[in-house]
Design a binder for these strands. Structure first.
Lengths: 215, 215
DNA sequence: GCTTGTGAAATCTTTCACAGCA
DNA sequence: TGCTGTGAAAGATTTCACAAGC
């Protein structure tokens, strides 16, 4: 079952499998769909169905070879090439994300940070120096940036996104507490932390509960 | 259509509608499903179906009364009561979240922060002073905390979650780059920022793109 | 006339259950 | 025997399309 379009729900779980595999890679050379499912918090049939979209990389009676499966998932996710990330908005959240270890360990390289505040420009954030937003157009082209992370206030989010898109950035992760729009050929994910808490507080009332997001 | 169980997919969109309504509340006393849909990035029929789960709060030929609809959504989400939040892990991300404006503006109050590092304990983060994790049990009970936000390293995430649960916290938002488990009656959402970027980088390759998360 | 509310259809996702292979 | 890979069934979600109401 190779070459066809991978369902969106599956794509959202592949990175989770990858993380579980990375954690498990020390223990055993192979892993069963059952164990992988348990660690990822899903059903074993789901794991097998998901992985079948990549091809037949398991061995019946044995399981999946951990290293090989990691390679195949990475390849399909397109995470095997180092991608360049910029962060726009060097406030608390922007600074935290710039130094967040989870990016580098997954092959993402934070190559620049931007802020409109002259007091922030020039200060050191992680391994980058904060640049003025006015320099975004040149910097984006020059560095051939892949991903933009937006941590500006809501009021600046849309104009920031427009700048990123016109600078050739094809993936945008928006943390600003407002919804932004992009042309259809740009990948966009919106994350609003306040919204997350509202959803949680709903589930608290009922019996049903565990919900996973960003996975 | 009132009183029955609200579908999970709908619950995930309600907070987004709430945010859109808050933004639109200045402009007009009413809003159509079409406009609300456009601002929330979904289909108008979906908005109507979603809202129909709360009751019939619209007026045919007119639309929805913004203030009243906000009230109804808030009530159903259980966000009309002020909820107490603690943040465990006072690193960059924890500090950023402690001062993140999106929580307070949505009725969540950050009442305490914890860290295991003695150097961090006692320092000021937002309006709270960092407490040692050893004081979590008493503090959680004393303040009757509703929500726990975990921003520890992966290695400390599960034990932190266990402490939160035994301290009576019924909602947990996990930002640590590892999956944690909780008993079924605790609401859990997992957010891994590295995973987000991996998903984005997949969509970059294909034609289809815009994906919303945490919404 | 304009917009909601909602059955019915279409689509997508998950789960089942078992044939097939190591 | 044990575990994958996968059709088929079940379930959930989205979209359509239109009757009903203001």
């Amino acid at each position: 079952m190779n070459g066809h379009r991978i369902p969106e729900a599956t794509v959202n779980r592949l990175p989770v499998y990858l993380r579980v595999l990375a954690e498990a890679s020390g223990s055993s050379p192979t892993i069963s769909s059952e164990l992988l499912a348990e660690k990822a918090g899903v059903n074993a049939a789901q794991v097998r169905k998901d992985l079948s979209h990549l091809g037949s990389y398991g061995t019946r009676g044995v399981g999946y070879e951990v290293g090989y499966l990691m390679h195949q998932i990475s390849r399909r996710l397109g995470v095997d090439t180092e991608l360049k990330v910029v962060i726009v908005g060097a406030g608390n959240l922007g600074q935290a994300l710039a130094t967040y270890g989870g990016f580098a360990s997954r092959g993402f390289q934070v190559v620049a940070t931007f802020d409109s505040d002259p007091d922030k420009v020039g200060t050191r954030v992680g391994v980058t120096k904060v640049q003025p937003v006015t320099s975004m157009p040149e910097t984006l082209r020059e560095l051939r940036v892949d991903i933009g992370v937006v941590t500006t206030p809501a009021s600046a989010a849309q104009s920031t996104v427009d700048l990123l898109v016109s600078g050739g950035v094809s993936c945008i992760l928006n943390f600003a507490p407002t919804t932004v729009a992009v042309p259809g050929h740009v990948a966009l994910r919106q994350v609003d932390l306040g919204v997350e808490l509202q959803i949680l507080s709903f589930y608290r009332q009922g019996d049903i509960s565990p919900v996973a997001v960003g996975e």
